[in-house]
């Protein structure tokens, strides 16, 4: 079973966002493997351990994204590929094109990715990739069973669960609840240093990646202010809150 996992390096979710010179400030920020991609990596490792084969993690991003790939290798992935090319940029059409060029050169039975990245949050790239590769996909899965070249998965559809069966090769995106991602062990971290790590650019595939969208502006939302604290006995608090919601906030 050859498994390709799409990963992205993102800001840690505990980070605050600061803006300078039209961009998000990255100095001193803690970067992590996108939490949804952790589920995808974990699932890939489990399937490989069960069925044999190879897990290749791939990321389109700058040099620093190598660290997220190393984390995936330390968790247990076998090989890593960084598509490090400024021409790819952040536009989802361009990223999907670049990933399709790479995946198209690799043997694969299964492609896994996160449901979305916690930074950009658009959730487009994996589904676009499935379409570009011409393989079926299911997004936001919470369960995946593979047997005899077929997959049975559960899809989270706003709380409802859809159970689908489909043939491989296929692409899936991981939703929370799919599994409990492992922490890299010390041994895993040591081993990761010796695993194959390729750094590629668009020139390796002879393709271009064109942006279809552009950012025109970046800004911070208005800061909320702390409001009123309501004091008194619980009964009084409830009554006063109710009154304020009615007369002041006018929401109910």
């Amino acid at each position: 079973m050859n498994i390709i996992v799409l990963v992205k390096q993102t800001f840690d979710t505990e980070e605050k966002i600061f803006i300078a010179e039209g961009g998000v400030v990255e100095d001193g920020v803690k970067f992590v493997l996108n939490p949804y991609d952790e589920y995808a990596v974990e699932e890939a490792i489990r399937i490989r351990d069960d069925m044999g084969g190879k897990v290749t993690v791939v990321s389109s991003g700058p040099e620093r994204a190598a660290e997220a790939l190393r984390t995936a290798l330390a968790m247990g992935a076998d090989e890593a590929v960084l598509l490090n090319d400024e021409r790819i940029g952040a536009d989802e059409h361009a990223v999907a094109q670049a990933l399709a060029a790479f995946v198209g050169t690799e043997p694969y039975d299964l492609v896994l990715g996160g449901n979305f990245s916690v930074d950009n949050g658009a959730g487009q790239v994996a589904v676009r990739l499935a379409k570009l590769l011409g393989i079926p996909h299911v997004s936001a899965i919470t369960k995946l069973d593979i047997a005899d070249g077929r997959a049975v998965c559960s899809r989270d559809a706003e709380g409802d669960t859809e159970i689908l069966e489909l043939p491989l090769p296929a692409l899936f995106t991981a939703q929370q609840g799919l599994n409990e991602p492992r922490y890299p062990s010390l041994q895993g971290i040591m081993k990761a240093k010796k695993k194959p790590f390729r750094e590629l650019t668009l020139d390796d595939f002879g393709v271009t990646a064109e942006a279809r969208t552009a950012r025109a502006e970046l800004f911070l939302p208005p800061q909320r202010q702390a409001g009123k604290l309501i004091s008194g006995e619980p009964g009084e608090q409830a009554q006063e809150l109710f009154r304020l919601l009615r007369t002041e906030a006018k929401v109910v």
Partner: peptide, 11 residues
């Protein structure tokens, strides 16, 4: 973006 910690305008 960043779940609402920042906003962007795109075209």
């Amino acid at each position: 973006i960043y779940a609402g910690k920042a906003m962007e305008k795109k075209k």
